[in-house]
Amino acid sequence: MTFDPNADISRGKASKRGRNTGIAVGGGLGALALVVISQLLGVDLTGLLGSGGVDAGGGGGSSSDASLEQCLTGEDANENVECRMKGASASLEEYWEGEAQKLSFDYAAPYDLVMFDTATSTGCGNASAATGPFYCPPDQTIYLDVSFFDELRGRFGSSGGPLAEMYVIAHEWGHHVQNELGILERAQDGQTGPASNSVRVELQADCFAGAWAANASSVPDVNGVPFLRPISEAQYRDALSAAAAVGDDRIQQAAQGQVNPHTFTHGTSAQRVDWFRTGFEEGAGACDTFSVSAGQL
């Protein structure tokens, strides 16, 4: 998906954080808290305990934030991945403000989208590049190391491309929308499996991402210029490829040579593709993954 070179992305919420390692868990979070947060996010953060990534006793490290002030236009977004994330943020913020009015719910944008190098502290504890992109409810911020996009292609087999990268952000932004709606907490029940609330939360976020992608070319900047140009068939396939690449079955098969459905937390590759397509074709109003039966997921 290509940005209009003249689009104004300067208002996008995104920042870049320098290297920050060996940092204490914010707010005194311990092992139990990380277990709960892992269930909430659908991301296993507990592996950071005892690995040097989390210093539960308080500790050093330093970071620096940059506001990506050089990322001003759609042309910048087309040329630079960090500017592209800022542009996606600007587009997603405008899209969900309009969608919230249509669907009649109160909405405020995420606090920030933080791109970090190697490791950083968050409201959910310490995170590393190995954690993968995630949304942290306590500080209402999306975090990612952009090196994940290389892993998405090299390790997970996605075809890559700008829309595949923006799908990742749109998915995490969907978790923020769920947090605003009071839905995200349903993943806190500790259950896993094909019809678990954790899977339903993730598939709904995929659906929300699809809804944004379908409408992104009609979302205008402050001057009325659409942020993005219409999606091409190849770009659409890139997004589907990214969704398929991170299915539970595909990841488990690659990692351990077998698939264990009772441990699913995100849904199969086919489910993730299907729900992205549902959002793309039918809009955010069709993304109620909690009202359908297990067989319809």
Results as ranks from 00 to 15, higher is better:
Asn20Phe: 06
Thr21Glu: 10
Gly22Asn: 14
Gly22Pro: 00
Gly22Asp: 14
Ile23His: 11
Ile23Ser: 08
Ala24Gln: 13
Val25Phe: 05
Val25Pro: 00
Gly26Gln: 14
Gly26Glu: 14
Gly27Leu: 05
Gly28Glu: 09
Leu29Thr: 00
Gly30Ala: 02
Leu32Met: 13
Ala33Trp: 05
Leu34Thr: 05
Leu34Lys: 05
Leu34Gln: 09
Val35Gly: 12
Val36Arg: 15
Ser38Arg: 09
Ser38Tyr: 06
Gln39Asn: 15
Gln39Lys: 12
Gln39Val: 08
Gln39Ala: 12
Leu40Ile: 08
Leu40Tyr: 14
Leu41Val: 08
Gly42Thr: 10
Gly42Cys: 08
Val43Ser: 06
Val43Cys: 04
Val43His: 04
Asp44Glu: 12
Leu45Trp: 01
Leu45Gln: 08
Thr46Pro: 05
Leu49Val: 14
Gly52Lys: 04
Gly52Met: 01
Gly53Asn: 11
Gly53Leu: 14
Gly53Val: 13
Val54Tyr: 04
Val54Leu: 05
Asp55Gln: 07
Asp55Pro: 04
Gly57Thr: 08
Gly59Trp: 00
Gly61Arg: 05
Gly61Cys: 05
Ser63Lys: 06
Ser63Trp: 05
Ser64Glu: 10
Ser64Ile: 12
Ser64Ala: 14
Ala66Thr: 10
Ala66Gly: 09
Ser67Pro: 00
Glu69Ser: 13
Glu69Asn: 10
Gln70Arg: 08
Leu72Trp: 02
Leu72Gln: 11
Thr73Ile: 02
Thr73Val: 02
Gly74His: 01
Asn80Glu: 06
Val81Leu: 10
Glu82Gly: 03
Cys83Glu: 10
Cys83Leu: 06
Arg84Phe: 11
Gly87Leu: 03
Gly87Met: 03
Ala88Asp: 03
Ala88Met: 09
Ala90Asp: 00
Ala90Gly: 01
Leu92Val: 00
Leu92Cys: 01
Glu93Met: 15
Glu93Arg: 15
Glu93Ser: 14
Glu94Cys: 01
Tyr95Phe: 15
Tyr95Pro: 03
Glu97Trp: 02
Ala100Tyr: 02
Ala100Val: 02
Ala100Ser: 10
Gln101Ile: 13
Gln101Phe: 10
Gln101Thr: 12
Gln101Glu: 15
Lys102Thr: 14
Leu103Gly: 13
Leu103Trp: 14
Leu103Ser: 15
Ser104Cys: 11
Ser104Lys: 15
Ser104Tyr: 12
Phe105His: 11
Phe105Gln: 12
Asp106Trp: 10
Tyr107Ile: 06
Ala109Asp: 10
Tyr111Ala: 15
Asp112Ser: 11
Leu113Tyr: 13
Leu113Arg: 02
Val114His: 00
Met115Ile: 07
Met115His: 01
Asp117Pro: 03
Thr118Gly: 06
